[in-house]
Structures are given as C-alpha cells and as structure tokens.
C-alpha cells in the first residue's frame, strides 16, 4: 500500500526481521533505535503509523509518547505499542494515538495484520 511505518525498537535483529517481512508486504519501513532518533526521523519524514517498543535507551517509549502529545501533527499518528512489559501505565493507554498493544513476542503476521487494520480505520 506504500504506507510508511516507523519501527522504534532498540533490537536490531527485530528491525531486520520486521523489515524483511513488512517490506515484502509493500510497506515502507523507517527505522529508529530509540525515542530520540524517532523524533529526529519524524521531523523529516512523517510516517503513517508507529510501532513503538517501550524499553529503549536514551529515550524510552513512555517518554517518547508523552513528548509526542505536545506535537500537533505528530500526535495524530496511530501508535501500536509492542512490548514485553505486562504493565503499561493506564495513562498512556488513554492517549488518543495509542491504538493497541501487542505483547512480545508476537507472530510477524499478527503485526502485519494489526498494522493493516489500524491503517484502514
């Protein structure tokens, strides 16, 4: 579909795996390894959807999410949280852009489906 998906995760292997699969599904993949990088990227190239890992160095997912709320255009981008953590603070789930939470590990198909579903809505 040509949609741009920003993967924010500190695990490079996951980037490779996500990228391989999702590019095969015709997504354009942007890669960031932490929240800060994600910000920088987004300023230049606005994605259509963000897949966000929570635990990252430099700036973690929670901080990133909070920061996004202040950025007019950016806060509208749908976010899929992908995390190992059981406990996501309820507050974060209330943000308008957070659509759903996928618990790692998930199958790559599930990720793909979820992305498609969220982009469709």
């Amino acid at each position: 579909m040509g949609s741009k998906v920003l993967i924010v995760d500190d695990d490079d292997e996951l980037h490779i795996l996500y990228g391989l699969y999702l590019r095969g599904e015709s997504f354009t993949i942007l890669e960031a390894f932490n929240g800060e990088e994600a910000f920088t990227l987004m300023e230049k190239d606005k994605p259509d959807l963000i897949v966000l890992d929570m635990i990252m160095p430099v700036m973690d997912g929670e901080t990133f999410l909070r920061m996004i709320q202040g950025k007019g255009e950016l806060k509208k981008i749908p976010v899929i949280i992908a995390s190992v953590n059981d406990k996501i603070p309820a507050e974060l789930l209330k943000f308008g852009n957070v659509r759903t939470v996928l618990r790692k590990p998930f199958t790559i198909q599930l990720l793909s489906e979820t992305i498609q579903k969220q982009l469709a809505s």
Partner: peptide, 25 residues
C-alpha cells in the same frame, strides 16, 4: 528468563515465517 526464552523463539518464528514467504515468492 521469560524474555530470554521468548525473544529468540519469537525471532526464530519470524525468521521462518519470512523464509516461508520468500520461498513461496
């Protein structure tokens, strides 16, 4: 432990899935 077990397994799965897709292609 969970993380250490699940993550590699997950990546395993993802790799195989991709391989399958690629072979299919």
């Amino acid at each position: 432990v969970t993380h250490e077990l699940k993550t590699p397994a997950a990546k395993f799965q993802m790799t195989v899935d991709w391989l399958e897709k690629e072979l299919d292609r």
